[in-house]
Simulated scan of single mutants.
Amino acid sequence: MPTAGHVTPWKGLLIGAIAGMLSGLFGIGGGIVIVPALLALTKMERKLAHGTSLAATLPIAAASLVTYAANDNVDWPFAACLAVGAIVGAVVGTHLLQVIPKTPLTIIFIVTILATAVRLLLSDEVVGRDQLSVLGGIALVVIGFVTGTLAGLLGIGGGVIMVPAMVVLFSQVPVIAKGTSVAVIVPSSIVGTIRNRKKRNADIPLAAAIGVAGIVSAVVGSIISDGISDGVSNAMFAILLVLVALLQIRTLFPSRGDDSLLDASDTTGDA
């Protein structure tokens, strides 16, 4: 297994704490923090950073899920449909990684999430979804598949796609969309970590340290998310989407010798 540079305990705790807070607040995996932090603080190669981040995501997302579920903020039928598509899409995406040009796909992704950010800011008050129909279930599987495929191709985790999709397309209450998102991230993280471990593409001890550090902050973030209004939640998530878009724009113009912060790798995505 490729080795990483040394990460001091306080740096590992800080990385985990920030990733956990983002996971709890927004229903994402935390890879948006973990991956660039590992690249900046260690000499870990990019694929190993993504694999390690994905493994660290598992305990963080699980902690968030427990809190969301305890507050009845998980839509399990939604989660099941999304998970089916996401897991299949993740496998397809990693296989297509060497076939599909990433630049045009990245540009499409940037435009899409920026448009979604604007739509979230303009959203009216959400009253909750209607009863899930067969067509709705199929649509969720497709969204999950697209999410997983993009995760495999771009190294972008599912939360930044699934949460706004549920809010905008299905009128889902934001806090429930976030809880549902982490419910999908947990099984996809398990599948991806098993694959990465077989390929010796994850530093499991480091991932465990970061993941355990993020458990407490993930619970705190989930509690905070349960108490904020839908309007504030949508605005905060829109800001997060803009940040992700800026990081993706940076990958289109890498400097010499610069590792893209969120470049794709052979993982199922963890942000």
Results as ranks from 00 to 15, higher is better:
I34L: 04
V127T: 15
L22R: 09
L105K: 03
G16L: 11
A83I: 06
G211K: 04
I34V: 15
D124H: 11
D263P: 01
T42W: 04
V141M: 10
S225I: 08
T67A: 06
G5A: 04
A139V: 06
T116Y: 07
I249R: 08
A79H: 01
K11C: 00
E45T: 15
V220G: 03
V173K: 12
G12H: 06
V160R: 00
I110A: 09
D266H: 10
V232R: 03
G211S: 03
R250K: 15
A79R: 04
P77V: 11
A61H: 05
S133N: 08
T103M: 09
L140F: 07
I34W: 03
S229D: 12
T149V: 13
I108R: 01
V182E: 06
R250A: 15
W10F: 12
F170N: 11
L120G: 03
G158M: 04
D226A: 14
M236W: 09
V74F: 00
N71F: 08
I87D: 03
T106L: 10
R197E: 09
T193W: 06
I15P: 02
P104M: 03
N196H: 11
G29A: 11
L243M: 13
C81Y: 05
M166A: 05
L154M: 09
I185D: 06
D72A: 11
A69N: 08
R195Y: 10
A208C: 10
N196D: 14
G128Y: 09
A19C: 07
A202I: 13
Y68E: 02
N234G: 02
V232S: 09
P164R: 07
P101N: 05
V182Q: 06
L247M: 15
L132P: 03
A49I: 07
T180Y: 04
A264V: 08
L243H: 06
T116H: 02
G27M: 08
I60P: 07
D124F: 02
L241P: 08
G211I: 11
N71P: 00
L39R: 04
S181E: 08
V175M: 05
Q172K: 02
I215H: 00
L262Q: 08
I100Q: 00
I185M: 11
V118L: 13
I110P: 00
A79S: 05
G85R: 02
D270E: 10
D203E: 14
A86C: 00
I185P: 01
A139N: 06
L41M: 14
L121T: 12
T180I: 14
P9A: 12
V163D: 01
G85H: 01
V220E: 00
P77M: 03
K198W: 01
R250N: 14
V127I: 13
F253H: 14
K47H: 13
A183E: 07
G20N: 07
I100L: 10
A235D: 10
G12T: 10
A80M: 06
A207N: 05
P36E: 08
P164C: 09
T180G: 03
M236Y: 12
V175W: 02
G231F: 07
